[in-house]
Each structure stands twice: as structure tokens, then as C-alpha cells.
Design a protein around this nucleic acid. Structure first.
Length: 680
DNA sequence: GAGCACTGC
């Protein structure tokens, strides 16, 4: 490789280690010193006592703990042993399913209890708890959903919100919900609700302020020091810089010192893997053999598992990963981290009003998280491919998800879901809801407007949920899709609608490997309908069912088996909810008009009209849009279509389309279309 | 004639 002979970015060594970025916040804190002293004698019990004491005294405590502090597994046990829970349940939320499940398993082992008895977990499709469960790990979305049924969270005496620094939309909403529940319970003279917020954040004051100046406890982690090196000058090509840095490390570092490199996406990672393998080959005999492992979410699970394989003696593992390796996956053996300081994120484009995926700078918090990955088992090094001045200009924290949605069309759906959920919780004044970081007024109003259009809320002296809205809130779906389900009763086609909605709500069931692209597209053509992609999806579902849905059929037809399985799980879940609401499970057989009319009731705001020039414009925004080449309607030009989503790449593409009649649009939302001229 | 980071109910 030519690259190896060139000079890489020179580095300046910094005296930074685990307390990087914390600055005086932490080191001058009285609690911190007190905690450290105590910990030197007896590492974990003083924390336990202090925690229990504070929770008893003040009801709310913030716990700041580095990775490896054991807070997720230990703190619930502390509170349980001290009987802070007073016989009822302790809930611990996690942003990710896997974390909720694996942590619960470990704690069950530690407590020598069968999983699902004393210690259990609850995630979508899986409730492993029982009457005797006292420590319950769950996803944040799950607790939020439970809160709709019981806003006072009566079955819990302690709610622990873990990984709060990640600021997922669910955790952010839960902040307000648990705070309100705590206050309400106190007011009603019910058993107090204890709240513990656990975070790895640097932005401690913000959390503490929000929770009425709750005391902050600092935990030390099992983190080893990491030397941080900044680049001396700005790097114009971070991929190149990353490769050069890897080359230098590889030539100098002893074997079995593994490397983790962060890149932004699949393409970048795959091409980097090829370069890295080239380096390995060109240095054969002079340096340890390289095992290059790509890691990103879209990778099949078996391939992902390779990063956990132990590196054979004398070799070096180089893991090239997306930000999945920041939080979701912990890889053993990492001594070096290469951080180009970039991440691919959804960003809002104010010019087009659309969001798109773009490579942007990470936050300081993310940089710290990446650095920490080098110090899990012993001390390590982190190469930051940006200057210290550049680092100073990074945002302190990643923008909370709930604020990312502002004016962002794709995310509008999420905010309307959240608004619907909050209203179902009995909170109608969302503008004044106690958000830790509030979304803009405009984005709330837009969400309320959408719910109004769907008939989920009505505006009297104040905004309130309609009976329809209440029913909609019971479904774990975007409000538009819930509306489609509820309207299916009128058209007697719930059977078909359920299949379509299930397939639409999850990830794509189309599997298109690079090597067999043509075969995959040909296989797909068999199911395509001239009425659009929704009917095509229904054809797939029906065929899958008629052949008994086996693995071979999926392979032959290039259908993504795992995603298909998830869609079936979703369908079962939706069916249960429909049963509870006494919705008749009728089939319309081949009456696709009924199906498309249902879809119109939920997606009329996503209608596009064919213009004389042969292009489309979106009826709500008057913006030009195009049919995505993957659509079954790509080669046809129907007068009116609905689309499931817009995606901005080289053009503004509509995805998942359905042919409709303009009359249906008017029937579905007369007020929305009254000023718009629609030919009959 | 196109490409998509990561989650969750």
C-alpha cells in the first residue's frame, strides 16, 4: 500500500484520561471526594448507604456513573435489599431491548433467582415477569406505554431511568411523566414514588435542576486511563487520515492490541475493510496478521458476532464500526480507538423542509464515549483525527431526539405519536408540559394539527382527545397507521389492512443482496400490483401464508426472513389490540378499493397529483415529488397517489405508493381539501 | 433509475 509510506497526521499528546471534560464540575464536588475516600476503603457499600439514605430522604436522586461502574446491575439490588421498594416493584428502563434482556438475565443470576421470578424483564413481544417480580428491567417505550393505562404508575415504588444521557424521545417524555406521577401521588397521599436518574453525562446540572435540585451521586467506573491524542492540523479527508493512523499503529503496536475505528456508514466501512486487508497483506511477515471486521446494524447477525471472537495469539483485530459500537455493542480487547469525529445523522434541511442523512460532527459526549472504548480492560489510546480547537467547537451533548423533530417531516410522525400518547395520559396542555428540553411550539402545533386532521383530537375550549383518538393511542403505531386500522371496520377489510400495516410499520421485507440484485428484483416482480406497493405487500403476505411461510420460500423470493417474522409478531400484537376493542376481523377478499379507501383515511395528507408535464406535486405542500424507482408504480403514471414517506436524496422521492381516486381524498378529509381544486 | 446512521411501542 502506497499509503503506508506517506506521513500521517502528526499528533500532540495530551494529558487526558478518564476525567476528561468533566473539569471542575466533578473534581471540586464535595460528594465526589467523599465518595472516593469511602470507596478506597470499601468500594461499593458506602455508595449503597448514601444512595439509600438519599432516596429515602428526598425521593429523587441523580446517579452519575462511568461505564463499568455497575450501576445498572447493582443499584436496583441495593434498593431492593434496603427494602426501599416496600414490597412493590422497582422498574429500570433501558433505551434498547437487548440491554433490558441481557442485564435482567445477569442480575437474575447474581441474585440466584430464576429469570421471570424475582428479577424479570418486559420488552415488546416478551413479558418475562410474574407476580413475584420485584426488579423489572424494561425498555423506556414500554414503561411509557404502561403509563397510559396507569399514569400514577401505582405498581412501582421506584422508577430508575437508566442511560438518561442518551436522551431518547421515550426517556425524555418519561422524565415529565414520572415527575408528574411523583407529585400526584404525594398530593393524593399515596405511597411515594422514588425516582433515580442514572446517566453518564457531563451535563449534570441540567438534570439536577430539572428534578428540583436533586442530589447527585458520582460513581467511579472500572474505566482505565486512556491517552488521548489530537491531530495537529485539520484533516480534510478523515477516511484517509484514519487509514494512515491505523497503518502507524499497526507497525508499532504489539500483536493482540486490537483497534476500533469509527466510520459513518456501510459503504465507507466496506471499502475501508478492503483497504485494511490490503495493508495486512502488504505487511505480511513484518507486522501481525490483520483480522478486519466490519460492524453495522444492517449486517446479518452471524457476521456481527465475528467481532466478539477472540483474536488468535500474534494477530490483530481491527473492528471498523458505525456508532453502533458507541453504545449498543461492547467489543473485548480494544486497546486503540481511531475517532474521525464524524457520524451519519438525520438532519433537517430548512430549504427543502425535508430531512436527510448527512455526515456531521459528533458531540463532545460522543467523543468521550468513543474514547472510553479503549479503556475497558486495560489502559489504552485514542487517536482523535481532529484538533483540540476543533474539539472545543463540538456541541457539548447530542441534541435530544425530542428536539431533533422540530420542523422535520419524517419526525413529525414521532412527535404526533408522542403528543397522542401524552394526551392519552391525560396531559392536554402540551405547550406547558414540563419537558426537560422542550420541543418548539411549532412542532407541537404541527403534531396537534395532524391529530386534528385524523380526528384524534377536537378543539373546544381546550384541545382534547376524541373517542377515536383514545382508541388510536392503544396501538403501538404512528397515528396515521392506527387511523387506517380503525377505519377498516367501516370497509370490512381489517384482515387485509392488518397485514399491510404490519409490513409497513417495520423494516423492509425486501432483501436485495449486492451479488444477486437482478434475481431479487425479478422475484419481486411476481408480487407487484398496478394499484401500488401496499397491494404488492398484501400479495406477498398472502403468498407467504399460503405456502406456510417457510425459510426456503423466503430465500427463493428474496424476502428478508427476520423482518418478515417481526411483521408477523406485530400483526399478532395488533390483532390482540383489535380484539380488545371489539373490531370485527373481516376480509374484503379481492376488493382492493376498500383497502385503498382505508389507506386514504390515514394518509390523505400525503397525496400527490400528476401534472401535465408528467411530474408530480405534493397536494399539501405544492412541492415537486417523484416516484421512487423501487415502487411498483415507477413505470406508470396514475393521476393521484398516496405515499407512505418522502425521502430526499438526488430528488424528493415518494416511497410505498398507492393509486387513489381524487374523490376519496375529499371524502376522507373534506376540510383539508375544501380549498383545493380537485377535478372529478 | 435508486442507495439508508441508530433505536422503540
Amino acid at each position: 500500500m502506497k499509503v503506508l509510506h506517506m506521513h500521517g497526521p502528526p499528533y500532540k499528546k495530551m494529558k487526558v484520561s478518564k476525567n476528561l471534560d468533566r473539569k471542575k464540575d466533578v473534581s471540586t464536588s464535595f460528594e465526589y471526594h467523599k465518595l472516593c475516600e469511602a470507596r478506597r476503603k470499601l468500594p461499593i457499600y458506602p455508595v449503597q448507604n448514601r444512595l439509600v439514605q438519599e432516596v429515602r430522604r428526598l425521593n429523587t436522586v441523580i446517579v452519575i456513573g462511568e461505564t463499568g461502574s455497575g450501576k445498572t446491575t447493582q443499584i436496583p439490588q441495593f434498593l431492593f435489599r434496603a427494602e426501599v421498594h416496600r414490597g412493590s416493584q422497582i422498574a429500570i428502563t433501558q433505551p434498547r431491548r437487548v440491554a433490558a434482556v441481557t442485564v435482567a438475565k445477569r442480575v437474575a443470576q447474581e441474585m440466584k433467582s430464576e429469570l421471570g421470578k424475582l428479577v424479570g424483564y418486559c420488552v415488546r413481544f416478551e413479558d418475562v415477569t410474574s407476580e413475584s417480580t420485584r426488579i423489572k428491567y424494561m425498555t423506556d417505550g414500554m414503561l411509557l406505554r404502561e403509563a397510559i393505562i396507569d399514569p400514577l404508575m401505582r405498581r412501582y415504588s421506584v422508577v430508575i431511568l437508566d442511560e438518561a444521557h442518551e436522551r431518547t424521545i421515550h426517556t425524555d417524555v418519561l422524565f415529565g411523566v414520572v415527575k408528574a406521577a411523583q407529585r400526584q401521588r404525594a398530593k393524593k397521599g399515596l405511597k411515594p414514588l422514588k425516582i433515580v436518574v442514572m446517566s453518564a453525562t457531563m451535563d449534570v446540572d441540567h438534570f439536577s435542576e430539572y428534578f428540583n435540585s436533586a442530589p447527585v451521586l458520582y460513581l467511579e467506573g472500572r474505566q482505565f486511563p486512556v491517552n488521548v491524542y489530537y491531530s495537529c492540523c485539520t484533516q480534510s479527508d478523515y477516511q484517509f487520515a484514519a487509514l494512515v493512523t491505523l497503518g502507524q499503529i499497526h507497525k508499532q503496536a504489539p500483536p493482540n492490541h486490537d483497534v476500533l475505528m469509527f466510520l459513518t456508514g456501510q459503504d465507507e466501512i466496506e471499502s475501508m475493510v478492503r483497504f485494511v486487508r490490503d495493508i495486512g497483506r502488504s505487511l505480511e511477515g513484518q507486522a501481525p496478521p490483520i483480522i478486519a471486521c466490519p460492524l453495522y446494524a444492517a449486517l446479518p447477525p452471524q457476521v456481527q458476532l465475528r467481532v466478539f471472537n477472540r483474536t488468535p495469539p500474534g494477530a490483530r483485530k481491527v473492528v471498523i464500526a458505525t456508532n453502533i459500537a458507541e453504545t449498543s455493542v461492547t467489543i473485548p480487547g480494544i486497546k486503540f480507538v481511531i475517532d474521525p469525529g464524524m457520524v451519519k445523522a438525520r438532519v433537517f434541511n430548512p430549504r427543502s423542509g425535508l430531512d436527510l442523512l448527512k455526515v456531521v460532527r459528533i458531540s463532545k459526549a460522543q467523543a468521550l464515549q468513543r474514547t472510553g472504548r479503549a479503556g475497558r480492560e486495560s489502559s489504552g489510546s485514542c487517536y482523535r483525527l481532529y484538533t483540540e480547537q476543533e474539539f472545543d467547537s463540538f456541541k457539548l451533548n447530542t441534541v435530544p431526539e425530542i428536539q431533533k423533530g422540530d420542523l422535520n417531516i419524517k419526525r413529525m410522525c414521532s412527535l404526533s405519536s408522542v403528543v397522542l400518547q401524552l394526551m392519552a395520559l391525560g396531559i392536554s396542555d402540551l405547550i406547558h408540559f414540563d419537558f426537560m428540553d422542550r420541543p418548539s411550539k411549532e412542532s407541537i402545533i404541527t403534531a396537534v394539527d395532524e391529530l386534528h386532521l385524523l380526528g384524534a383530537v377536537e378543539k373546544r375550549e381546550k384541545i382534547q382527545l376524541t373517542a377515536l383518538g383514545k382508541q388510536m393511542a392503544a396501538f403501538p403505531l404512528e397515528p396515521r397507521l392506527s387511523k387506517v386500522i380503525l377505519v377498516a371496520k367501516e370497509f370490512s377489510c381489517l384482515e387485509e389492512i392488518m397485514s399491510i400495516v404490519s409490513l409497513l410499520s417495520g423494516e423492509s421485507v425486501f432483501y436485495t443482496p449486492h451479488k444477486a440484485r437482478e434475481e431479487a428484483l425479478a422475484a419481486r416482480r411476481k408480487f407487484m400490483s398496478t394499484e401500488g406497493d401496499h397491494i404488492s405487500l398484501l400479495n406477498i403476505y398472502k403468498t407467504y401464508k399460503s405456502v406456510g411461510g417457510n425459510k426456503n420460500w423466503c430465500m427463493e423470493n428474496y424476502i428478508h426472513q427476520r423482518n418478515m417474522k417481526t411483521a408477523l409478531d406485530v400483526r399478532n400484537q395488533l390483532r390482540e389490540i383489535c380484539d380488545r376493542q371489539n373490531l370485527p376481523f373481516k376480509s374484503c377478499r379481492d376488493d382492493t378499493v376498500a383497502i385503498r379507501k382505508c389507506l386514504t383515511a390515514g394518509f390523505f395528507m400525503n397525496a400527490a397529483e400528476l401534472q401535465r408535464e408528467g411530474t408530480y406535486i405534493c397536494l399539501s405542500t405544492r412541492r415537486p415529488v417523484s416516484i421512487h424507482p423501487s415502487s411498483s408504480l415507477f413505470r406508470s403514471k396514475p393521476g393521484y397517489v398516496l405515499y407512505n414517506e418522502l425521502i430526499q436524496t438526488s430528488k424528493c422521492y415518494m416511497r410505498d405508493l398507492c393509486v387513489v381516486d381524487p374523490d376519496w381524498l375529499y371524502e376522507a378529509a373534506p376540510s383539508h381539501f375544501k380549498r383545493k381544486k380537485l377535478p372529478t
